[in-house]
Design a protein around this nucleic acid. Structure first.
Lengths: 336, 336
DNA sequence: TTGTACGCGTTATCAG
DNA sequence: CTGATAACGCGTACAA
């Protein structure tokens, strides 16, 4: 059902139908009414695609999400989708592989869809290959990067101070009198993980709980996956090597859930014997027993910030700043 | 950068460029090479939108997800997105309101995007208004409904036997010697919730643990939201009214997480004093302490089934059956 | 107030 | 092997 079909039925030209559809003036009220009912009766739906071809904008935003179990990130994407839906923008979600090449390919791939703007979910996209792909394939299109930094005049980054946050976590535990703090990192293949690690190191340095880097290293563990099982396995290992652990910082809430489980099993009281902090402030922090104290790294808030900037940008108001940093904060619950 | 630009640079016609782009025969190898490098050098990306205009298909699938905190559903959508990405199909996610009218409006809205097929995530879409919208706006387009049934020759439903599953949960607990089983329902505004409720009633009837409907009703509670807090509040209430409760079935894992928290607080041993079963078999079942026994209602598997059928359908193989039911199963962990 | 003609970027058809 | 032309569905000058 096209405007031509309707036009034929109404005995008018397609232009008139177009005018009616878009509420433009210059149509006889009588004709307008006639066309309108015809439109209704035939369940006519305009083809936004064809529209976009002529108006040169598609009312679509591309959102790239890396594959793998990063439910929290997906929650953020979902949130952005909601905001865009409100202003009648569609969201094309593209799940990309995790390698730099696959991420870059995602840029090319989404460009095919002629989207008006692009959102990159997560620090995984913050690398040179992706930056080059952006400059190649969409040098003028607004690109928003969540939780990472990227060069480019058209790239807007919203990052969260995870480094400072992790450092604050260490200080927080030290203030509570903890002396033997273990850090369980998530898989180190993203800038975000690196930032968190740096933050932990900084916190250790500033509080002076360990005497040197070599000493500190002994208290740092790395998970392969960011899931509960992984947290469990590492905690077992950590307790074996450091029976006197009295503080624990996990790079994700999921890892913390696993770690907490081990503590329960061993009859270790939380937080009396070991205090625990996670990162993400996700639903898992709430599902954990006891409720998990967690560093809010502002993923959802960043998404919201991006959505706002995105919508403004789509309406012609270019963001003034290319980089925004959201400060993190510790949300204290029952494990500290 | 269009094929015309490239054509001009190569000193050929757009047709030849098109042939090269689509790997079609009938181009002089020499010319082909020349065009190919030109394409590369200029970072040419074909406009899938314009392509779709002529080929009358957009290589896009619309996925409707209801707003509200249904993380598990979103996980399913994410999964489908991944499957579609593999075969180079884009996914347009549209978050719709929860009312029937808003759901139906979603159908119209997604049709504007000219998608090749539509997926409706969740039983919320299984209502007459949506069914009518489908028949109005996309009577010939393949529509897949997850966890619900809908009339229409072009509608394919993948439902899970939640009714049978809930009934099985009751029997499962009764077999373990439980006599006072409480049921905490999620918000009753979806067919799925109704199914689960029916299943509980059926289980009660078949095991004969309660003498009549009025008696049974006393053990049934309803949550306003499907979150942890809600589970907590209801459990408090239930324990007050039924101190002798020895079995608990929660309509979602989230509710169960909240309920379990209350049991911990009151020093009630799980599963010795009260056995607990959730529904969804989600990450929250794993995050719960103790690990939550949960009815796998096959949301993820349904999504996978839909993805397969969808891809096949897009390639011209229409599904043979309009309705498929996936049987649910209890995944036993530590709370029973 | 209405209709004609053209362009958006691409593919397909057909003639050369 | 190559190129001109029409068509996809719509919006928009411009002409009537």
């Amino acid at each position: 059902m096209t405007i031509y079909d309707i036009a034929k039925m109404a005995g008018v030209s397609a232009s008139s139908v177009s005018r009616v559809i878009n509420d433009k003036p210059g149509v006889n009220p009588e004709t307008r009414r006639k066309i309108k009912t015809l439109l209704e009766d035939n369940n006519y739906v305009p083809n936004e695609i064809a529209r976009g071809l002529v108006s040169r904008n598609s009312r679509m935003v591309g959102v790239l999400v890396p594959e793998g179990y990063s439910l929290h990130l997906m929650e953020g994407a979902y949130h952005i989708t909601g905001r865009l839906s409100e202003v009648n923008y569609g969201t094309i979600i593209l799940k990309t592989g995790c390698s730099e090449a696959e991420c870059a390919e995602g840029i090319r791939s989404i460009e095919e869809r002629n989207v008006d703007a692009v959102v990159l979910m997560g620090s995984r996209y913050a690398n040179d290959k992706v930056a080059r792909a952006v400059q190649h394939f969409m040098p003028k299109k607004p690109v928003f990067l969540l939780n990472g930094e990227m060069a480019g005049a058209n790239v807007y980054s919203v990052i969260s101070d995870e480094c400072g946050g992790l450092s604050a976590c260490v200080k927080f535990l030290v203030q509570k009198g903890r002396k033997h703090i273990v850090y369980i990192s998530d898989a180190m293949d993203r800038p975000s993980s690196f930032q968190k690690r740096q933050g932990f190191l900084q916190g250790v340095r500033e509080t002076g709980i360990y005497k040197d880097m070599a000493d500190t290293r002994r208290f740092m563990y790395e998970g392969l996956n960011n899931d509960i099982d992984s947290g469990e396995r590492i905690m077992e290992q950590a307790l074996l090597e450091h029976p006197d652990t009295d503080g624990l910082i996990c790079a994700t809430d999921m890892l913390a859930c696993g770690a907490v489980r081990v503590l329960h099993r061993k009859g270790i009281r939380i937080p009396e014997q070991i205090a625990v902090i996670g990162v993400d402030n996700s639903s898992f922090a709430d599902a954990c027993y006891p409720r998990l104290t967690s560093l809010n790294n502002m993923i959802l808030e960043s998404g919201d910030e991006i959505a706002s900037k995105l919508i403004a940008s789509l309406e012609g108001h270019e963001p003034k700043a290319n980089r925004i940093m959201l400060l993190t904060e510790i949300v204290e619950r029952e494990t500290t």
